[in-house]
Design a protein around this nucleic acid. Structure first.
Lengths: 197, 197
DNA sequence: CAGTTAATAAATGTATACATTTCTATTTAA
DNA sequence: TTAAATAGAAATGTATACATTTATTAACTG
């Protein structure tokens, strides 16, 4: 079932699949020709992609390790906050959702693991029930995707086990443990990925 | 010395000073006429204002109390994180800056107090040294301004004293105390303002 | 030859016409 | 009388021409 991708989705996919030369400026005019639209919608799309840390000026945004650390600091701040809320709010059904995503991640092929892991973190974030914080998190979706892809493809050790431990902490309603575990989990993702990227 | 305000600054000021009827849609066409420009720059400005939680769809964004609580949850998360960093990083000169802003806030007329208080919080945020978190904070600038104006104008009790206590906690390098105080401080700002707004 | 300046090209910024969508109000049918 | 349908108006979406700014490169000068 082929969905009709929006212009934004098309450009985003092309960026994530490495279609663009990061040395060459993506001028509005060139993009307009490439996607056979006028400059007007291209401008909107570029704005959105800058918002998501994929483009800067007119270039593919190649964040420095420092930038990635800063982005992960923001991500960690939000997910740590989310754990606290999850421990407060999650019932058996929510915890079951988390456990199922862990099972799927273990069982599946790479891309199933990838999407199951995404589900795990998104479920955690859902506990916040704060659209402003959620949006700030979602803004990092593309960056988070790039890192998740790396840790799954290059098989970072203990990746899924750590998810299981986090669920344990939630079941035990142990806030300090949960926060510590999620922080360690994300730190490892970051360092592992920076090593390979 | 009259600076030449950008279109964005003009519209933003007009919104903050209550120039627009919140029931009436700010259509691109009407705004273009009002500010004597074409729809193109108006669109950009509207996007920016939506980004800052001042406009939604084409209407003045009138956040619900729930929205304000959520925005303050995000603000508190960031400022609490900042305190931790400040306790780790701030030297005597930084602490002195904070103290000076408190003196100014005590001494000055209303608008001096307002800007001194803004300085206090911005200085705190500067300890984060993370452009992504700073931007997320600055995005709330307009909202924060509206609240600060209310608490200063309506003379919320203990406002400046609480700043002084926070500086104490930083000097004592007491993280738990600092976090607790900033959280209480912001909670009071929120509740006080919601009562009056 | 290095560094500045001027000329040119190419990009972004802005205005505007036209296309499409969304909203509003009025008619029509149940 | 309510609800659905529809015509008209008004908004946003898109393309494009023109204005302005920025970048590039060629020419000039010390």
């Amino acid at each position: 079932m082929e969905r009709n991708l929006s212009l934004y989705e098309k450009v985003r996919e092309d960026i994530l699949s490495g279609e663009f030369d990061e040395k060459e400026k993506m001028t509005e005019i060139k993009l307009a020709k490439k996607y056979e639209v006028s400059r007007t919608p291209i401008r909107e799309v570029l704005k959105q992609l800058e918002f998501e840390y994929l483009v800067k000026n007119g270039y593919i945004y190649k964040p420095s390790p420092e930038d990635y650390r800063n982005l992960f600091e923001m991500r960690t701040l939000i997910e740590t906050h989310a754990i606290e809320k999850a421990i407060l709010l999650f019932g058996p059904s929510d915890i079951n959702d988390l456990k199922n995503s862990i099972e799927k991640a273990y069982a599946g092929p790479e891309d199933e693991t990838l999407s199951a892991n995404k589900y795990f973190h998104d479920k955690l974030i859902s506990s916040i029930r704060n659209p402003f914080l959620s949006e700030t998190y979602e803004r990092m979706n593309s960056i988070i995707y790039l890192f998740s892809r790396t840790v799954v493809e290059r098989q970072r050790p203990n990746l899924i086990e750590e998810h299981a431990q986090i669920v344990e902490a939630i079941e035990e309603r142990d806030v300090a443990k949960g926060k510590r575990l999620i922080k360690e989990h994300l730190d490892k993702d970051l360092e592992f990925s920076l090593y390979y990227m």
